[in-house]
Structures are given as C-alpha cells and as structure tokens.
Simulated scan of single mutants.
Amino acid sequence: MTKAVYYEGNQRLRSGDAPAMEPLPGEVRIAVSYAGICGTDLHIYHGHMDHRVSFPHIMGHELSGVVDMVGPNCGSIKEGDRVTVMPLQPCDNCPACDAGHRHICHKLKFMGIETPGAFQKYWTVPVETIVPLPDNLSLKHGALIEPLAVACHDVRRGKVAKGDYVVILGGGPIGTLIALVAKASGAEVLVSEINPHRLELLENMGLNVINPLERDVVAYVEEATGGAGCDVVFEVTSSTAGAELMTRLPRTRGRIVVVGIFNKPVPVDLHKFFWRELEMSGARVYEREDFSAAVELAASGKLPLDTIISTVYPLDQLAEGFRQMESGSSVMKILIECQ
C-alpha cells in the first residue's frame, strides 16, 4: 500500500492508504515528487465537477516524479527516469481524433478528473502520457511543465511573433506563464490584473502591468501602439468584464485567444469583429509539441520559475494548500511534496 489524499465531496479531503498499482503492459509507475494545485482542482474541491469524478477521488495532474516501475512494452522508458505526464487519454475513435486533434477528443478523459490523479505517492499511468525531463531541470520546476505547456499552446494559438504587442487579461498562474512565454518569443507584453500581490510579483519578474481599476487599459494600449491597438489579446479572467474588454483592444485584423473557461454565455461585441476583421480562437489544453516546447523553455533557465512557486506543502497538508488557494490574495502556485 501507499499514501494518497482523497476528495470525498463537499470540500472534504481525507489522507489514507492507496494501492501501489503494479504497471500492466504499456504502463509506468511514477514515484511522484511534486504535484501542483490547479484551478481545476479547486473547481473539483468546490463540487463544481462532481458529475465527472468517482468518489473517493484522487485529484492532481501537474506533477514531476521518478519512474519507479516499468511494465512490459514500454519502449525506452526505464526505472530512474525523471518525468512528467501529459494527462490526456483520448478515445482515438471520434471525429476529432480522426482529424488529428486528439487533445480535444470528443470523449477525452482528463487524468486527475475522470481517472485517479497525482496527489499520491505512486501513480501508475499509460506510457504514452510520459514526458521525459532533462537532468538540468529541477523536479520542482518539472511540476510546472503542465501549466507551462498550456501557456505554450495558448501562445501558439495566438500566433505570437517577435515584435508583437500582446495584452494578457488576468495575471494568475496561467496568465503569468502566457506573459512569460510571449515575452520569450520576442513580444512586448502587458498584463492586466487587479490583485496587488500579483501585480507586484509580475513587476518583479520584469513584466509590464496595469491595474484596470486604476487606469484605462484601452487608452493605455492605444497610446502605447500609436492608436493601432495590440496584435494579440489573451482573455484569462473568465469574466464578463474580460469578455467586454477583449474586443476593444486589438488592432485591425488583430487576434483574440480565449483561454478562460466561461461556464455561462456572456455578451461579446461582434460588431468589433466585423469592423476590424478580428480573429478569435479557443485554446483548451495542449498537444505533445507544447510539452516539448515547455520542457525546452523551462530547462533553458530563462523563466523565473522559482518566483511562481508560492509555497510547498507535504502531501498530508493538501487541505491547507487548498485553503491558501481559496484565500487568493498572495498565492501564485502551490506545490505538494508527495514523497
């Protein structure tokens, strides 16, 4: 047996035993080093995704670890390899999969939601989900690869190029990583955020910031771009205010990428799309190439990843990590040490 933390509904978490699953053919068992608490985990914790989980449920999908045991038919993966996981299990038998878009499979299972996740000492996963980590990347930083892959995918969807003026609406963990990836791509970046702690943190990372409660974002961007507007907007707030603002910022034929999850329809000014021939894209998760880009970027040492990690808790204090996440005021990314 091993240890895990179970979600039992109604914001209840319980530490307990879990079977140390021996890997079947095509499976690998990971000794989980660190696992990050994600906004999705918080949604599960608050009961918003109870229809997708099986109780008791082990959450978590952002992780790093070391291969502990390898089942048959696992290719070159071996014990002792340092790895992370791309936590998607597509059906390979739907129109999206047939079109090559397995990451947004119509019947996609997201590991840590529809299946048990990483908040446990040992996690057995399909070998095809394994992503190797280089030796020069710390395991703490390795636990940030999954959200960094989200950011790499978002920036790729936005077709961000060197010299672009990019605005990110929302400076939480994903918005911050999008800003860092866009800046690393050669773009000029502005992050709109209202949380004072995050504004200070973003500035300390060398990012330009603006508080929309204190300054007019549209006027600021127009002045900065000579009246043209920005090249790309990333909407990461999932708010009605963000949906309203995102159409007022782009230049003619500018681009909008919707990253935030809107659970209900919100008003969007379609006249702006007509008037300036705007483009809008959705960005859901990531593809394998985004994980490769994230690993390469993290290993380069160009990103201030230590600054993004707010706190590290041991596995049996996962509930405290969720309580700190809920406070929101001074948190960016919380990691759980699972060994």
Rank of each mutant, 00 (worst) to 15 (best):
V189Q: 02
T124S: 07
E287T: 15
M86D: 08
L315Y: 01
M86V: 03
A4G: 14
I178G: 05
E62I: 02
D68W: 04
P90K: 00
D231I: 06
F291A: 03
T115D: 12
G9V: 09
M325Q: 13
V70P: 04
R52K: 13
K107I: 08
L278V: 07
R253D: 11
G301Q: 13
A228K: 14
V5F: 06
A298L: 12
P90V: 00
H46N: 14
R255M: 11
E296A: 14
D17W: 13
P87V: 06
E62Y: 04
Q120I: 03
R12F: 10
N204L: 10
P173K: 02
D68Q: 10
P304Y: 08
F274I: 12
I168L: 11
F274Q: 12
S15L: 14
L315V: 01
V85F: 01
G301H: 11
S185W: 01
V191Q: 06
N73I: 03
N204G: 15
V85T: 03
G328V: 01
E200A: 14
V32W: 00
H271D: 12
E223A: 13
F234W: 02
Y122P: 01
E188R: 15
P134T: 10
P267G: 03
N263G: 14
D154V: 07
I309R: 08
A161T: 14
G260W: 03
H46V: 08
H61Y: 10
V257A: 01
G142M: 09
A151T: 09
A99H: 08
V167R: 10
Y6M: 04
A299L: 02
G175C: 05
M332N: 13
D41E: 15
E62N: 04
W275P: 03
N208K: 13
E114N: 13
I37N: 00
G80C: 09
V233Q: 07
I37R: 02
N93T: 08
I113G: 05
V331I: 15
S281H: 15
A96L: 10
G282L: 11
V85K: 01
H51L: 05
E289P: 03
E22R: 14
V259W: 01
Q317M: 14
D164A: 09
T252W: 11
M111G: 05
G75N: 07
F291I: 02
A35L: 01
I178T: 05
A149M: 00
D231S: 15
P56W: 05
N93V: 03
E22T: 12
D164M: 12
G117C: 07
L108A: 07
F234S: 02
A319V: 08
K264N: 15
G170C: 00
G229T: 02
R323M: 13
A99S: 15
V191D: 05
M332A: 04
P132A: 00
S192G: 04
K183E: 10
L24P: 01
L137C: 11
V66Y: 06
M59V: 08
N136C: 02
G186N: 10
M59N: 10
L202F: 08
G142K: 05
V233W: 05
A96Y: 10
A293L: 11
H141A: 11
E203P: 06
F291M: 07
H153R: 14
K3C: 05
V312L: 07
L108D: 04
H46Y: 13
L63E: 07
P304F: 09
T115K: 14
S15T: 15
